[in-house]
Amino acid sequence: MNEPLPDRSESAVVLIVDDVPDNLSVLHDALDEAGYTVLVATNGDSALQRAVQAQPDVVLLDAVMPGMDGFEVARRLKAHPVTAPIPIIFMTGLTETEHVVAAFAAGGVDYVTKPIRAQEVLARISVHMRGARERLHQKQQATQARNALDAFGHATMAIRLDDATGAVRAVWQTPLARQLMHDYFAAPPAQIPPPVLDWLRAESSAAGDGREPRPLSVNRQTEAGTRQLVFALQQRTGDDDLLIVMREVSDAAVVEAMVQAFKLTLREAEVLYWVAKGKTNRDIGDILGSSTATVKKHLERVYVKLGVETRTAAANLVMGRLRQLNLGVAA
């Protein structure tokens, strides 16, 4: 029984590279009958040209050919950004371990030995094409998500951690993310500032430790008051990069959230905000242009609405609710 082929809406393309006409004929007929679109090349130069032009789904590559051999063809395919993702299945009569190792080292994902058995080749193609298409689908989903984030103005970036070298870099950023990184750190594109880098390295292993990653908060002062940038570590992308979402919080945004969350008046929320920041009634009066007695009256009404009796209890309650809302009170 034939190996079932992957589900596809249009004919998949296979490039066969072999300098022996009989091999080409056998494989061409079997693949054509199975529903593939088949391209052929009889030497390394034409194989490279065809692969770039057609971008086939799979390459069946003869290891031993005059001139440029299959190992060199594979290395060049993998070095070209257009053809690098294409699975390469070697066809070879060389079965010594060193030749098999050379095939994988050159970028091959599999090999079949000569004489070629068409059904075995079909089975190998089916497996590797399915894997290639799943990887392509993941990349497409990641790209679509990235485009959606850009379109809706989210501050998001993907970070790549190289476990071997320890290198860290931003592989993509939405426009808003680039702007925020510049505003808070004067950071050029792709550069990760030290505070973010330290946080990333500490929190990237959180899932393996069985805990939720902790957010990072960075403050900056503006003429309009304190603004806060909160970094949250999300799931990994289809490329296994770390996805970070940034949210900027201002004093005004926090106060408005407190109005909504606790059914306070604007002035009551302002008083509670400064209480949560550790200010005394006298300090709050100076900030808001009110007397200490007026601040005290506002605070008494806040206690009733929150169901607490002390400023410490009020501050703890508001801090907990703001954390639930992914907001914070800048220090």
Rank of each mutant, 00 (worst) to 15 (best):
E248I: 14
V64K: 10
H298N: 12
A106H: 07
T222D: 09
D251A: 07
G238F: 06
A105R: 15
Q119D: 14
R8K: 08
Q260H: 13
R75K: 15
P56C: 04
V59T: 07
Q138P: 01
D45F: 01
E223V: 09
F104A: 06
Q49S: 13
D7A: 07
A164W: 00
L31C: 10
A257P: 08
E3D: 12
G210V: 08
A170H: 04
R236Q: 14
A190F: 00
G166K: 04
A253T: 10
R311I: 03
T83P: 03
K277N: 14
V275Y: 12
A34M: 12
V230W: 01
V52K: 06
D283F: 11
Q55L: 08
D286I: 07
D162Y: 00
R236D: 00
T280Q: 11
A47T: 01
D163W: 00
K297L: 09
V101M: 13
P56I: 05
D7N: 00
A148E: 08
A34L: 10
A177V: 13
R76I: 04
L15S: 07
T222G: 10
I88V: 15
M1K: 10
G278Q: 13
H128D: 10
M129A: 07
A123W: 00
P193R: 00
V218N: 02
L180N: 02
D110R: 00
P175E: 09
T237D: 15
A269D: 01
L27N: 04
S250G: 11
A313R: 06
N2Y: 06
A54T: 04
V196F: 11
L322D: 02
D29R: 15
E223S: 09
A34F: 10
N147F: 06
L5Y: 00
E256H: 13
G278R: 09
L272K: 07
R227A: 12
L15G: 10
G307D: 07
L60C: 06
L197E: 14
W172L: 01
V73D: 05
L200M: 15
A252P: 03
R169L: 11
Q260G: 07
D286Y: 09
G166N: 06
Q324W: 05
R133T: 15
F185I: 04
V38E: 14
H128N: 13
A186P: 03
L288Y: 07
D162T: 01
T42E: 15
T280H: 09
A315E: 09
A293W: 03
Q55D: 02
T83G: 02
S290W: 00
Y184F: 15
A253S: 14
V329S: 01
D239L: 09
A253F: 10
V73G: 03
I89V: 14
T42C: 10
V308T: 11
Q235S: 11
G328C: 05
D241R: 07
L5F: 03
A164I: 09
T83V: 05
Q235Y: 06
A232M: 02
T143E: 12
A148D: 08
V121E: 06
A12L: 14
L27K: 00
